[in-house]
Design a protein around this nucleic acid. Structure first.
Length: 889
DNA sequence: CGTTAAACG
DNA sequence: GTGGACGTTTAACGT
């Protein structure tokens, strides 16, 4: 049997655009709408198995509706260029799929679809209409089902006439009456002002149609009667505008719309161009050749590379002149964790010539000269991810110094949120030859295999050459963006400092952790037993799904919040449920202890190096959008501290030498001090200049009371307001945090802004600046782009606005502690101190210190931290020490 | 491999 | 009236 699927192309592309995060391929082409459209299309084809498919588009020009009403669609915001550039791409892709598309000048997509559904009704063929536009519900009939996208585009609601009756109490034909009364802001259909969905439905249930409502205005009362009578004509016209024209002269025949499936090779070519990797895999197209040879360019280019693969025997070929001509290097360190990475080899690129040294040769006697060159800090080196390279090499006994330019680090500064930071993505961005993906050369996961030497050499050569060419572009871009100091004086030197800290590692006392672990095991077992007793059965407490069934289905506790897959059982919800049932407290305790056991006892034990008893984290300098560091393998930036049970984990972090101490120094209120500086707010500045307790000060101003009238609860609320301010405040967020109503939260915020007028001005100004420039910056000119600040989607736009407020604050704080780290490293060196900097936790630095340096370090560390950058308010760092990290409080 | 929850600043 | 706090990583579950 035939089954037709008619898709409203413009509507779905629009929905997809606003539902998907911004996505670009490495050529900078936006692809999110196309991607969203495609995933939806694939799902629908699979689910519906249509015999015919048509995608209808609006034909850009004026539609005949303008003849009646000048403003039709006039109120709609212009299509953003990021979306319009995707329409041609989408149309090409549909062609690759073998799917028919129509557009007809003078008509919109819904007119075309309306006409085809009329024909479907006449011939009785089953049809599914897919759109994001509720207007189209008017087309539903015995044979025609209308699918409306929900929650972005991830799901659709299917509407038959029965479903429409259930939901609205209307027939499909009455949908136009509904629009006639309530209007539609997005289509600039006026309707009757003040009449929304609720009122319109009420009137239609009573009278049946716009005409009948207008004929019976005497039965309405008060304001509503007045409004309806004065806007009679609007209602009639609105209804006309909302009515889909179903007599479009269509010439194309049914054959064109028949869907016969796609050609694998054509589609894989199209997906490759768009870099839809996940879709290639999903459709199992990875093995397909692709419509056009996109490898051709790279192959042609690499043919021009003169590759010299060096063996032990001919390492002597590497003369001083050759080394002096090297412009870039590429070190292949395989594996995610550089502390355990395999080094496959190194490529050294000069203009037009690349030397490749496989790992075996690198570690041989014959490579002494090369190793000397790599270790020479006076020799400037450009590379890709030299931080990882240097760390991986250091474990192999090879020193890499003299890094002066790293294209990964530069790419991060140029756009910290860009996801495409592979060498290939960077190469394509600057119009350079493509670099094949590592996955293609080595395979992935268990299938990882080092290819024959000549293939390896080619791959490393391409990379090294690519680095050389990318660097030239980036050097100019950094200069243009005013980021030279940020790059050359902060981030690049910091990279070395981080390597040192990572290689040094921190000692973790395994015995201490194991003792803690067995205590936890006992308590967890006890809790499990008690939980099962209350539940009347055993189940997996770690499964939110099973837990939800027990709490809400079996025990009948009230549902407070839902996730997209079921009941929410997070701590927030459980805390509200605590009064209802004893089991809830037990689950909260279980969760807490289970986290400690799995992540911090077992997880940390696995990371301890047997030989040294140390853990070596890997700080990543190119991940966080704000400029912060992140920490991995293990993450040492989230070791428990807030609750005593967890805080005990810190007892296991000890100095690596007997008699030494752990010393920790943290910035006090660095983010609010930064805010005081960049907003210039006089009250906030004054508070820090006189070293007041900032939360008490905030409470005084927000509640309008003197210092001695501020109680604990007021200070707690003020503290939450301060957090909110830093995060880019919203009344909803604050209300959630404080468990108060939105109104109350809004009142707090208003009070805050009335007291700190400079802060309000900063918040307004920075959002405006972001809209103008498209990005925000920190004090050191770190940049973050916020394209969504102009989105018409409320969610996306609001998020961007909060980010605009938060990033300069969080980012400047990150700048400051990074400055302190570089200075601290330098100071320790210059003074010949034995103390070592081990960890950074966003606003805290952790050291291990010999007894005889303790007194000095107690003053030196805060001094360096406080003088890292001069602001209009003082920076303050508190210092503590002890025999382990727990005691350094 | 995506979702949920929990740990940190 | 919408639907949300900012930035991360790890572990476990279940499709």
């Amino acid at each position: 049997m035939e089954k037709w699927m008619l898709i409203d192309g413009n509507s779905i592309a629009n929905r997809a655009f606003y539902a998907m995060p911004p996505l670009t391929n490495s050529a900078g082409l936006h692809t999110n709408a196309v991607y969203g459209f495609t995933t939806m299309l694939l799902r629908l084809i699979e689910e519906e198995k249509p015999t015919h498919i048509l995608v209808a588009f609006d034909a850009g020009k004026i539609t005949f509706r303008h003849e009646g009403y000048e403003d039709y669609k006039g109120g709609r915001a212009k299509t953003p260029p990021e979306l319009s550039e995707q329409f041609p791409v989408l149309k090409d892709l549909l062609q690759a799929f073998g799917i028919a598309q129509f557009e007809l000048s003078g008509y919109e997509a819904d007119d075309i679809i309306g006409t085809l559904t009329r024909m479907a009704d006449e011939s009785g063929r089953e049809t599914l209409v897919v759109t994001g536009d509720k207007d189209m519900l008017q087309l539903a009939s015995e044979h025609v089902t209308v699918a409306i996208t929900r929650k972005g585009i991830s799901e659709v609601d299917r509407f038959t006439p029965e479903a429409i009756g259930e939901k609205y109490g209307l027939t499909p034909a009455q949908i136009v009456d509904l629009k006639g009364l309530m209007g539609d802001a997005s289509d600039n259909i006026p309707g009757i002002p003040g009449v929304g969905e609720k009122t319109a439905l009420k009137m239609l249930h009573e009278f049946g149609s716009v005409e009948e409502v207008l004929a019976n205005t005497d039965k309405l009362k008060g304001k509503m009667k007045e409004k309806v009578e004065t806007h009679k004509e609007d209602a009639v016209m609105s209804k006309k505008l909302a009515t889909i024209f179903r007599e479009v002269p269509l010439e194309s025949g049914e054959d064109e719309m028949a869907y016969k499936g796609y050609d694998k090779s054509i589609l894989s070519g199209a997906f490759r161009k768009l870099e839809f990797k996940s879709l290639l895999e999903r459709l199992d197209l990875t093995g397909e050749a692709g419509g056009e040879s996109e490898d051709g360019g790279a192959a042609a280019q690499s043919a021009e590379l003169d590759i010299v693969l060096l063996t032990e025997g001919d390492m002597s070929q590497l003369k001083d002149e050759e080394l002096a001509s090297i412009e870039s290097i590429y070190v292949e360190a395989a594996g995610e964790n550089p502390h355990h990475a395999e080094v496959l080899g190194i490529a050294l690129a000069a203009e037009g010539k690349v030397y490749v040294v496989p790992y075996d040769v690198m570690v041989s006697e014959a490579a002494a000269k090369l190793k000397g060159w790599l270790a020479d800090a006076e020799v400037n080196k450009r590379g890709y991810d030299l931080h990882k390279a240097a760390l991986a090499l250091s474990w192999k006994g090879i020193t890499l110094s003299g890094a002066t330019f790293d294209v990964l680090l530069a790419a991060y500064l140029l756009d910290p949120t860009d996801s495409g930071q592979s060498l290939n993505a960077l190469a394509l961005r600057y119009g350079l030859p493509a670099v094949p993906a590592d996955e293609e050369v080595y395979g992935k996961g268990a299938k990882f295999k080092v290819p024959p030497l000549d293939q390896l050499a080619l791959h490393l050569s391409r990379k090294a050459d690519s680095v050389r060419r990318i660097a030239r572009h980036q050097e100019q871009e950094l200069e243009k963006n005013g980021m030279n100091r940020l790059y050359y004086e902060l981030e690049q030197p910091l990279s070395d400092v981080l390597c040192g800290m990572e290689k040094q590692g921190i000692t973790v006392n395994a015995g201490e952790l194991e003792a803690l672990g067995s205590e936890l095991s006992t308590q967890i077992a006890r809790l499990m037993e008690a939980i099962y007793a209350h539940a009347g059965d055993t189940f997996n407490i770690n499964s939110p799904k099973q837990l939800g069934e027990v709490l809400f289905d079996k025990l009948g506790l009230p549902v407070m919040k839902k996730t997209k897959t079921g009941y929410s059982t997070d701590a927030d919800v459980l805390e509200k449920l605590e009064p209802y049932h004893e089991i809830v407290r037990l689950i909260l305790d279980y969760r807490q202890l289970a986290k400690l056991q799995s992540t911090y006892v077992e997880g940390l034990l696995k990371e301890i190096r047997k030989e040294t008893g140390k853990v070596h984290t890997y700080y990543r300098q190119t991940i966080a959008a704000t400029g912060r560091l992140s920490s991995q393998f293990p993450n040492l930036q989230n070791i428990p501290i807030r609750l005593e049970e967890g805080r005990k984990i810190r007892k296991a972090f000890v100095p690596s030498e007997p008699g030494w101490y752990i010393l920790a120094a943290d910035y006090s209120q660095i983010e609010l001090r930064v805010l005081a500086h960049i907003s210039g707010d006089e009250g906030l500045k004054e508070a820090f200049l006189t070293d007041m307790d900032i939360h008490t000060k905030t409470a005084m101003d927000v509640f309008g009371v003197p210092a001695d009238a501020v109680d604990g609860n007021m200070r707690r609320q003020a503290k939450a307001v301060n957090f909110g301010i830093v995060y880019g405040i919203s009344d909803f967020g604050l209300s959630q945090n404080l468990n108060i109503t939105r109104k109350e939260a809004a009142a707090f915020i208003e009070q805050y802004f009335a007291a700190f007028k400079g802060v309000r001005k900063y918040m307004d100004d920075i959002v405006m600046k972001a809209r103008q420039d498209g990005y925000v910056t920190t004090l050191l000119e770190r940049r973050r782009y916020l394209p969504e600040i102009k989105a018409s989607n409320f969610n996306l736009r609001s998020f961007a606005e909060r980010t605009a407020m938060n990033t300069p604050i969080q980012g400047t704080a990150a700048d400051i502690i990074k400055l302190a780290m570089v200075k601290m490293d330098q100071t320790l060196r210059e003074r010949g101190l034995k103390s070592r900097m081990l960890l950074q936790v966003h606003d805290e630095l952790v050291f291990e210190v010999p007894e005889d340096e303790l007194e000095l370090m107690k003053t030196l560390v805060p001094e360096v931290m406080e003088s890292a950058l001069e602001l209009d308010v003082p920076l303050k760092a508190d210092v503590n020490y002890g025999v382990n990290w727990y005691e350094a409080k």
